[in-house]
Design a protein around this nucleic acid. Sequence first.
DNA 1: TAGATTGTTAATCGATTAACAATC
DNA 2: TAGATTGTTAATCGATTAACAATC
Lengths: 229, 229
Amino acid sequence: MKRIKVSNNVIRRLPRYLRRLDELAAQGISRISSSELGQQLGLTPSQIRQDFSCFGEFGQQGYGYNVTALREEIARILGMDRGYSAVLIGVGNIGRALMDNFCFSAWGCKLLCAFDVDSGIIGKKLNGIPVRSMDELSAFLKSNTVDLAVLAVPNDSAKKVTAILTENGIEAIWNFTNVDIAAPESPLIVENLHFSDSLLSLTYYISDKKDEEAARNARLERQKSSAKN
Amino acid sequence: MKRIKVSNNVIRRLPRYLRRLDELAAQGISRISSSELGQQLGLTPSQIRQDFSCFGEFGQQGYGYNVTALREEIARILGMDRGYSAVLIGVGNIGRALMDNFCFSAWGCKLLCAFDVDSGIIGKKLNGIPVRSMDELSAFLKSNTVDLAVLAVPNDSAKKVTAILTENGIEAIWNFTNVDIAAPESPLIVENLHFSDSLLSLTYYISDKKDEEAARNARLERQKSSAKN
DNA sequence: TAGATTGTTAATCGATTAACAATC
DNA sequence: TAGATTGTTAATCGATTAACAATC
């Protein structure tokens, strides 16, 4: 039973550990030390041991960690064995991409049903998942246990749909819209995948790099001209 | 000219500020104080003032910040006025979703061209963007200035394509694959949008909440039974 | 046993918050 | 002018790193 408060930074690293361990297992590697794992991920061995120690003792002195055992521990910590059920709201491009290509079951989730307003797809099945009318959403949530909702509607209906979801007991939303749906005081769990925020941090780093290069070049230019005089 | 090193945490908050300021402007609000803005975003006024002060002095004592002026400053800091050019690699579901629905130009980027291996779409245009063969990628990168590549290929070709990109001078990648393409020492700028990592942190928080509730219930149960005896 | 490596405690570093003089 | 609010310096808090005893 975990009772200490684990920081968000630690949580965000867990999926990376999981992926790396999966790759190691695929390579047939069965044990790894914190220093080797750190090297591969660009983290210090200390940090890795600290991270794991939030949840228990998974290693063995003088040996390191068993790759598959550690992988299973992390999967369990992340809740991958709990079989959460999900609904998808919005079967536009992103919603469709998730239905077609995102393997919910690989991450311990079951996508029960999708909802949309487009009568052209309501009633159909996409990749085995039925698409229903948004009008049925509320009733569906009342009569089924749904642990999380995937929000992939257009930005301008994000807040309205969020209200429907929370009114019907949804406690967690995976948010693909470009809108902040989390109210500061609310207990609603929101995980954002803001594409534009992500792109903007990328363009920031590109700009920063270009600025630095320009500054270095200017400095070299000045040196050259002062050497001439 | 910014010369101090700005932390990643600060950079990640900038797009949120931008979005909030856009909303304020849309509401016709022209000025805001750090405390009001903090309230709306769930941040302390101190943090907001510290964040901005990394880049300059954008406010006015006794008044606060001008919404549109601050918005423009942040847009500039993020590089939105630099007109970066991009290519998209992989026109599957996600690639297509980006081409159809993601407004690159709204964030200061121009999507020049997409590349795929599927002969069924090579030569076509999607939403005005031409799709070319992957075989032409290398030549295209050599004869055009491309600031960033959007990587939306299947996981198993991610590393191979990354190699082609970096060999042809690409310095920044917006990575939609579920693979870590950043080598620990490389100067390549990588911004990841790992869907599964995001979902797993969500399921972690759901699990954590459920565990806490279960623990609380167990505690109450124990109290009740001990009161009976 | 000796060597390796953990888990954990202590030290350091960095980020957030508080306080306040400056000033609009 | 008085009130409000900034930008910045100092204090606090939390996260990362280092060190090391425990032990496989």
